[in-house]
Computed example of a mutant assay.
Amino acid sequence: MVPNQQFLIDLAHTKMPFGKYKDRYLIDLPEYYVVWYHSKGFPKGKLGLMLEQVYELKLNGLEDIIRNIKKQFPK
């Protein structure tokens, strides 16, 4: 499997590990919250990369791609 594919599959199944939206899937975070992270700075590491990807997806209205991946590749 191509690493980018695995990253998107992981993203589809990753939940926010802390804060107000703890346990909510990253793709289901409110847009304003992801935009806030974009202006504040994303966390370091894989979570930050995933939140940055969520920001780009939401910015372009492509959240359904991740929701479809979650359905195609259930955990």
Rank of each mutant, 00 (worst) to 15 (best):
F73M: 08
D64H: 15
M1D: 05
G41T: 07
Q72N: 14
G41Y: 13
W36V: 06
F7V: 03
K20H: 13
N68I: 12
E56D: 07
K40W: 01
R67M: 09
T14E: 01
D64F: 15
P3G: 06
I66F: 02
F18M: 04
I65C: 14
G41H: 15
P3K: 12
Y21M: 04
A12D: 06
Q6T: 05
F7Q: 04
K75L: 09
R67H: 11
G61N: 13
T14K: 00
K22Y: 01
L11A: 03
P30W: 04
G48M: 14
R24K: 14
E56L: 15
N4H: 10
V54N: 08
N68M: 14
K40N: 07
K22W: 02
M50E: 08
L51F: 08
V35H: 15
E56I: 03
I66W: 02
E31R: 15
Y55K: 01
F42K: 07
D28W: 03
K22V: 02
I9W: 01
R67A: 08
E31V: 14
K44Y: 13
K15C: 01
P17N: 01
I69F: 11
Y25M: 05
K22G: 03
M16S: 06
Y37Q: 11
Q72S: 12
N4Y: 10
Q53K: 15
Q5E: 03
T14G: 04
K70V: 04
V35N: 13
F73P: 07
H38C: 09
V54T: 09
